[in-house]
Design a binder for these strands. Structure first.
Lengths: 203, 203
DNA sequence: GCACTTGTTGAATTGCCGTTCAACAACGGC
DNA sequence: GCCGTTGTTGAACGGCAATTCAACAAGTGC
């Protein structure tokens, strides 16, 4: 028998187990027993904590998105140079490789958003938040005279998020010649044009 | 009983039925009976033509991608002006609205590409073909002195395809303020910078 | 240390889905 | 118009997964 845990701990475990299961089988293909196995429990135990599996999946995905966004914010937290901020942010939006769990799950959710209004709403929110994040960086850079924006910050921000999203899909799908480094260069190519700034920074 | 049809006809029907079923339930969530119902048949009849459901799904998706690409090529077939070609091509890569069946299915497949190597390969091929399509247009425009490319055509082509892909996802997910017309403007914003051309053309 | 609550199991139940197959109906060659 | 072939059905079977629940074990208050 699995060691007995208290409610909040076990629920957190289950959220993580659900994430792993979804990455392996897709959000629509997860089986209750798979989540249970990932958590080292029986299906009954899972049901005890989450009578409806879809509630657990939703919670797991919500938490995942929150973490993804928070991690991006954290990474630019200590930086002051707008150029460095922009480059680091672009980098943090891309998967590290094809096996990057966070991005893979986001891609899965993106796929189901056409059918699932809840996931569609979640992803829309995430998109807009990321756009705002870029807008802040862009306008800060413009205010300091480092960037000369080619157009309004919302347009540039949306395009930047769109590009990292799309290349995330390509990388996760194992494009043979388009890896994370390549994608970064492609997005930087746009960012340079849009900011009128060479964006040279140490890796 | 459903009217008896000849092999090739019925198989074509099944491919279409499979497409509809996948759009409703996702590529990973389709049930044999759902495909049968869409086709107005029983599960046995489906199995008679496709003993393995995944073969049918693959065939349906392959056909769908082929059609999507062919349709884009067809739309620029009669055009000669590089500006018009570029604008029309951008427009043809976006869904008409959130219910656009072709794009919705492509999004679904993109979501499963992290797990499914076959679909990943299919999408990779489609991506590269679309990039080539853009490259041809870009270089033709540059040769005629209409475009002044800001960087190599592969980079611009990749970014254009990436943008339309990403906005396809947003539109399908029903972003409240980012519809097809908005997406077109956003992509055009990049295309103008990348081609050094105002890209003004009648709708 | 006793009673009560909380977390977990394992077995039984139910329902659905894929699969198989015998029967049959429509078609096509000749 | 007869006969083999092809397409389709419906019923039967088998398996798997969700759900339920009685039993029990591990904490918790007092």
């Amino acid at each position: 028998m699995a060691t007995r845990k208290k409610r909040s701990e076990r629920r957190a475990d289950l959220v993580e187990a659900a994430r792993r299961a979804m990455i392996q089988h897709g959000p629509g293909g997860v089986l209750l027993n798979q989540v249970a196995e990932e958590a080292g429990l029986t299906s009954g135990a899972v049901l005890y904590h989450y009578p409806d599996l879809s509630d657990l999946l939703l919670e797991a995905n919500q938490a995942g998105m929150e973490r993804f966004y928070a991690e991006r914010m954290r990474r630019i937290g200590g930086l002051t140079d707008p150029i460095e901020k922009l480059v680091v942010t672009i980098r943090s939006g891309l998967p590290t490789d094809a096996d990057d769990a966070d991005v893979r799950l986001l891609c899965e959710l993106g796929g189901s958003a056409g059918r699932n209004r809840v996931y569609a709403a979640l992803l829309t929110t995430l998109f807009d938040r990321q756009v705002s994040m870029y807008q802040t960086i862009l306008e800060q850079g413009a205010a300091r005279g480092v960037f000369a924006l080619a157009t309004d910050s919302q347009t540039i921000g949306r395009n930047l998020v769109a590009l990292e999203d799309a290349y995330g899909y390509r990388i996760v799908a194992r494009h043979p010649t388009l890896d994370a480094a390549q994608a970064e260069e492609l997005i930087l190519s746009y960012a340079r044009q849009a900011t009128g700034c060479p964006l040279e920074v140490a890796a």
